[in-house]
């Protein structure tokens, strides 16, 4: 279970560029739940994910994952509990190294990295079996540098790597955004399959409302560093893309509702 309590983060505090990227965010993700975050650009979606991943320390608030208070853990230490897939297909793998080597690195996530030879025969078989499940024919190319693969293939592998050690939470940051539509659909499908098979808890930022409606079982909408909407349980079931659009609309209207509007309505709303 992931528990985020009153999490705040302000970038460039006390300057003209001050950005309140997260404002007192509270969120609890149940084990085995798959949640999508949607929201306008700059609404703090990635910042929320990065806060969980530990890219920076929050100004206030706490993050608990399972029974650990990870608020002050460094990024690499949290990785033992967290799997991540980034938007950029190049970010999640090492281009110059082979598929095998990349997987070996991911497989040891959260464990001591020993001085034993990493890529062994027995291990190759196991990797080939897992890679075969992607149905991309990559099991025959395990010794090719990962840089020779397409973005979609790399992202699929990154996903596999992120899920390999069954992390307590899987963080996906617009992981299909940089792919062509066909690969994006394929990776989205794999995402759902892997999360279901491994019964992972997942938090996915997406730019695609269709994806948000189709894949997860909960949708969170962010705006200006706040969670402004949370479609859960039966609400999630009935929500469709136009509903999300109108919610976006409403959120933006709320933005326009300032003090002068309040003054006007005080006179006229009777």
């Amino acid at each position: 279970m992931l528990k985020i309590e009153s999490l705040s983060k302000t970038f460039h505090a006390n300057t003209a560029n001050e950005v309140r990227a997260l404002q007192n965010v509270n969120l609890i993700l149940e084990n085995g739940s798959f949640t999508a975050i949607i929201g306008t650009n700059g609404s703090g979606k990635s910042t929320l994910l990065n806060a969980v991943a530990g890219t920076f320390e929050p100004d206030t608030g706490s993050i608990h994952l399972e029974n650990h208070d990870i608020t002050h853990w460094p990024e690499y230490k949290r990785a033992s509990l967290i799997g991540r897939v980034f938007q950029n297909p190049f970010a999640g793998t090492v281009a110059e190294m082979t598929i095998m080597e990349n997987i070996v690195i991911a497989m040891k996530r959260g464990q001591r990295r020993s001085l034993h030879i990493a890529v062994t025969k027995t291990f190759r078989g196991e990797v080939a079996d897992r890679v075969r499940t992607l149905k991309m024919g990559l099991e025959d190319r395990l010794d090719n540098p990962i840089g020779t693969l397409s973005g979609g293939q790399r992202q699929a592998l990154t996903l596999l790597m992120a899920a390999w050690t069954r992390p307590k939470i899987l963080l996906l940051d617009e992981h299909t955004a940089a792919l062509d539509p066909k690969s994006a659909a394929k990776v989205a499908e794999l995402t759902k399959i892997i999360i279901e098979q491994e019964k992972l808890t997942a938090l996915m930022v997406t730019h695609s409302m269709q994806q948000a409606v189709d894949l997860p079982d909960r949708i969170i909408m962010m705006h200006r560093g706040n969670i402004v909407e949370d479609y859960h349980h039966e609400q999630k079931q009935r929500v469709r893309v136009p509903d999300l659009m109108s919610t976006f609309d409403r959120v933006q209207k709320r933005e326009l509702f300032d003090e002068s509007v309040a003054g006007m309505l005080e006179e006229q709303y009777i």
């Binding site: 690499y76 990785a79 281009a95 690195i105 959260g110 464990q111 890529v119």
Partner: peptide, 19 residues
């Protein structure tokens, strides 16, 4: 292996639990 990866893609190795 982790050492070689760290030079190529620091973000990736951090995400894989390597300091």
């Amino acid at each position: 292996t982790a050492l070689r990866a760290a030079g190529q893609n620091p973000q990736m190795v951090r995400a894989q639990g390597v300091n």
